[in-house]
Amino acid sequence: MSSSRTSSTPIGTSRRRRGVAAVLGTLTALLSALALVLTLPGAASAAEPPPPAPAPPEPEKPGDAWMGAGVRMHEGDDTPGTPPADGGKGVAATVHGVDVSSHQGNVNWKGLWDSGVRFAYVKATEGTGYKNPYFTQQYNGSYNIGMIRGAYHFALPNSSSGAAQAKYFASNGGGWSKDGKTLPGVLDIEYNPYGSTCYGLSAGAMVNWIKDFTSTYKAQTGRDAVIYTSTSWWKQCTGNSGAFGSTNPLWVARYASGPGELPAGWGFYTFWQYTSSGPIVGDHNYFNGSMDRLKVLANGG
C-alpha cells in the first residue's frame, strides 16, 4: 500500500503570505523611489519659505544709507521670524509693509503685493545732495499696484540745517497730497552710518535740529512728519527727549519679536520695523492698527 504526503500548510494561507510579500515589496520600491526624489536638487523646495533677501552693504558715502542702516550696524540684525499677529501690543489688527531704497533697484511690486504687503515707504533724499535714482519706479509702482505709500528722508544733521533738509525733502518726493494713498513723510534719524554716532551734536543741539526739520516740513506740507528711530539711539543722542510724542507719529526700529521700550514721549508706536532682511526685498514693518486706520493717517487724521 502506497501513501502520499500532503502539505501541512493550507493552500489559502500560502496564497495570503505570497500576497502580503508582494504588497511589502511594492511599498519598499515606492519608499526607495521617494527617497531618491527627495535627494534630488531642489526637491520639496516649493514647501520651504524663501530665504531672507541679503541686506545692503554697509554705507560708505552719502547716499548709501537706508532706513535702518545705522541700527543694523550698531544693534545687530536678529532677523526674527514673523512677529505676533497683534504686533506685540495687543492691537486689533496690523498691516504689513516694506521700506525700500536705491539698493533694491526696480522693485517687483506685484510680488510684494501677492505676499501680503499693503504699504510702502520709499527713500527719496539724504542730506541736501542725494536723490534716490529709483524713486519714480518705486514710489509710483507701489501706488499703481494698490499700496498706500510715502517717502522718507535720511537725515545728516552734521551737513546742513534741519530746515534746509526738510525743504530739500519736500521738494524732491517728500510732499503730501490728500488722495487717500499718500502717507506723511518720514524723518529717518538714527545712528550715523558714516561716522560719529550722534553726528557730533550734543543732545540739546540734536533736539533743536529735529525741531527745525519737523516744523519746516509741516510748514511745507501741512503734515507732521513721522519720526523713525531706535530707542537706544534716541536715548543716547537726544537725552531721551519727550518733545515730539504729542505731534509726530513714531516709527520704532527693533529687530526682535516685539517693539520693546519706546522713546520718551510716545505711549505707542505707529510703525514698527521688525527686520532688515525681508523674504523678498527691503526692510519689513507693521502698522499698529487696521487698514482703515492706515487710510485715516494717509488722509490727514
Rank of each mutant, 00 (worst) to 15 (best):
V71G: 00
Y194D: 02
A47R: 08
G245L: 06
V20D: 02
T247Q: 12
T231R: 13
G180S: 12
P50M: 10
Y228P: 05
T229R: 02
M1I: 11
L34E: 12
M206P: 07
A166D: 07
A205S: 15
L294D: 10
L262Q: 08
E126L: 00
P10S: 13
D283P: 00
V23Q: 09
F169K: 03
L183E: 08
Y274E: 03
V98G: 01
P57C: 03
G25N: 12
T216H: 07
N172L: 02
G105C: 06
G25W: 10
G68T: 05
A243G: 06
P51F: 01
V71D: 11
D77H: 01
S277W: 00
A33N: 06
T94G: 03
F154V: 12
G42H: 06
S290H: 11
G175H: 10
Y199I: 07
H96I: 01
I145W: 05
L297I: 13
P59C: 08
R293E: 15
T270M: 04
P184F: 05
W209E: 07
G76D: 05
A264D: 15
Y139I: 00
P133V: 05
W176F: 09
G129H: 10
S290N: 10
N288E: 04
P41G: 04
G146Y: 10
S215A: 10
R72P: 01
S161H: 07
I11P: 02
Y139P: 00
S230K: 06
K178T: 10
D283R: 00
A253V: 04
R293I: 03
E190T: 01
N106A: 14
T128W: 01
P62G: 09
S232L: 06
K61P: 00
V281G: 01
P59Y: 07
G25L: 14
L30M: 15
S102H: 14
G105S: 05
P157Y: 05
P54W: 04
R18E: 13
L27Y: 10
K295G: 03
G239R: 09
E48S: 14
A151D: 06
N108R: 13
G195Y: 10
V281M: 07
S230L: 02
V91W: 12
P49L: 12
L156N: 04
L40F: 09
A29E: 03
G173M: 01
W109N: 04
Y274G: 02
S232C: 00
P157F: 03
I148L: 14
V226T: 10
T39Y: 00
L294H: 12
K211T: 09
G278N: 06
A44I: 05
N132A: 04
R293K: 15
K181N: 14
I280S: 14
F119S: 08
V20N: 11
P41C: 01
A219F: 00
R5A: 11
P52V: 04
L156T: 09
T197P: 05
A85S: 15
T26S: 14
G12D: 08
T214D: 12
S276K: 01
K178L: 11
D224P: 01
F154I: 06
A253D: 08
P184Q: 06
